[in-house]
Amino acid sequence: MLELLTGTGLATAAGLNAYVPLLLLGALGRWTDVVSPPGGWEWLTNGWVLTVLAVLLVLEVVADKVPGVDHVNDVVQSVVRPGAGGIAFGAGAASQTAVVTDPGAFAGSGQWVPVATGVLLALAVHAAKALARPVVNATTFGLGAPVLSAAEDATSLSLSLAALLAPLLVLVMLAAGGALWWRWRRRRRARAEAAPQDATSAQVRHGGGATTPP
């Protein structure tokens, strides 16, 4: 159970920022005893891999905060984030951590199963992020991009830490995130439905309503 929450948290975090969970997983595995990556995933702790991930993380953080550039970045990340989610789930769910000392059968049932699960989770989160960003940019004239991006980065880091150190918190964070997403979608739908009515009312107030034929 806990290893599934670990993988879920890391894959979801990768849907927001591909490099945060991978860099954290590799760094903790290399320099601490908190994480012990399983066989086949030790390459995440390699110094060169960590350096590349750190550089890519910096580029991602900067690009995602520039209106217009963030959309191009999301297009590119449509492949990267799901792939990172698969790696994060596969490596994280099978790792020994401070909480999970004996990963269960799911993690060791074949690497493609957890990897495929991670790909789907990260893809779903990425899709939600990519759909929301243009709306936020349009309604805030681009001012909301850096704020939302910073919140996404912080959420990705928090999810990754929770997944590795306190997996049960992943459930709470995912529930809160889902509630916020549902509320945002509901408000957006309500505004879209109210817009035609407001336009009609304004037209009538300004004498633009239908005229009676002579």
Rank of each mutant, 00 (worst) to 15 (best):
L2W: 08
L4M: 09
L4K: 04
L5H: 12
L5F: 14
T8D: 01
A14T: 11
G15D: 06
Y19F: 09
V20D: 00
P21L: 01
P21F: 03
A27W: 03
A27P: 01
L28I: 07
L28S: 03
R30F: 00
W31H: 13
T32K: 03
V35S: 06
V35M: 04
P37M: 10
P37Y: 06
P38G: 12
G39Y: 11
G39A: 09
G39Q: 11
E42M: 08
W43H: 02
T45D: 04
G47W: 03
W48K: 07
W48N: 14
W48T: 15
L50D: 08
T51I: 13
L53A: 08
L53H: 03
A54P: 08
L56D: 05
L56T: 11
L57K: 06
L57A: 07
V58Y: 03
L59E: 07
E60N: 01
V61G: 07
V61I: 09
K65T: 00
V66N: 04
H71I: 13
H71G: 10
V72K: 06
D74M: 04
V76T: 05
Q77G: 02
V79G: 01
V79E: 04
V80T: 14
G86V: 15
A88Y: 04
A91D: 04
G92P: 05
Q96I: 14
V99F: 01
V100G: 03
T101R: 15
T101V: 15
D102S: 12
P103R: 12
P103D: 14
P103Q: 10
G104N: 10
A107L: 10
G108S: 09
G110S: 07
G110D: 11
G110P: 02
W112T: 14
V115S: 06
V115N: 02
T117M: 10
G118L: 09
L120P: 00
L120R: 05
L123F: 11
A124D: 03
A124P: 00
V125E: 03
A128V: 12
A128I: 10
A130P: 00
L131V: 04
P134A: 11
V135W: 12
V136G: 01
A138I: 02
T139I: 14
T139W: 05
F141C: 05
A145T: 15
S149E: 02
A150N: 08
A150I: 14
E152T: 06
E152N: 03
D153Y: 03
A154T: 15
S156K: 02
L159I: 02
L159H: 07
L161S: 06
A163I: 14
L164T: 14
L165F: 12
A166C: 07
V170S: 08
V172K: 08
A175C: 02
A175N: 08
A175G: 09
G177F: 10
G178V: 11
A179S: 11
W181L: 12
W182F: 08
R183P: 00
R183D: 09
W184Q: 14
R186H: 12
R187I: 06
R187T: 07
R189H: 12
R189G: 01
R191P: 00
E193T: 13
A194V: 09
A195R: 15
P196Y: 13
Q197C: 02
D198K: 10
A199W: 13
A202C: 08
A202Y: 14
V204C: 05
H206Q: 15
G208E: 13
G208T: 11
G209Y: 02
T212G: 00
T212S: 01
P213Y: 10
P213C: 02
P214Y: 13
P214R: 13
